[in-house]
Amino acid sequence: MPILEVEDLSISFKQYTSKWQQETLTVISGLDVVLEEGEILAVVGASGSGKSLLAHAILGILPGNAIQSGTIKYKGETLTSARQEELRGSEISLIPQSVNYLDPLMRVGKQVRASAKSGDPVTLQRDVFEQLHLQEGVENLYPFQLSGGMARRTLLSTAMVSGAKVIIADEPTPGLDPVVIKEALKNFRAFADQGCAVMLITHDIESALTIADKIAVFYAGTTMEIAPVENFKGKGEALRHPYSKALWNALPQNGFTPIPGSQPQSNALPPGCLFAPRCPIATPACGEARPEMRELRDGKVRCIHED
């Protein structure tokens, strides 16, 4: 059963290019993503493809100058900003990127306890800390005293004590050593197996592949393909979109093959398919209109060619 559905989400920002001229930057356009109960969905894509903004949009914490369209549904109910305000922290929980997301002047134990919505916060926090192998003294430390790994686990524990049904983890792995990454990912798996849902936003495809059920490939602010994790193997023959294939084959262990060009800037998006300028199989038809997302072989793709 889908727990979280994002349909045709677009996010743009108004920006002043000079004193009087305003420009609208579209950072996310026509994005579709579905998160099922008991599932880990990994959202992968290059930096600047709008991954973090997706997380912020779901929680309703986009900056004031953002313009958002499309619908986000939680358990089938369309979210309004008032409803988002009720859900965040209790039903939907964010695991942010870095230690900067902790209040520098507050002890971390206290910050974690503030996330607990039911039960005794102190017991909850201590249980979770023990589970994550954080020593007893850590709760009395300030964020600046934490090591990178400790900070990550502290951030993770804020989500774990909250009892949320949906966890959105924004780049939880960079800077961690492989052992801790494995540990953190194992926690996500355990979490999903309890019937919750995890959206793992990352550019670390390898780690994502080890635990995710589905992979959503992000490019220039939209999903190009949503594929089951099994499709990522061999030369990527089972994948549906040329970009997913290119991304897969660019990994060091898969041939390290680069493709020319770079992701378009959000103020200079091509009119048709966003990947068309770099696509090896592009035809004139690709440059005319944005392809719709369509079902294909147990996944979804935004390309007119594949079948």
Binding site: E86, R88, G89, S93, L94, P96, S98, Y101, S162
Partner: peptide, 14 residues
């Protein structure tokens, strides 16, 4: 505008 206030908001504080 800091990250920790954003995170506090993400945790439902307001």
């Amino acid at each position: 505008a800091s990250d920790y206030v954003l995170f506090a908001r993400a945790k439902g504080e307001k």
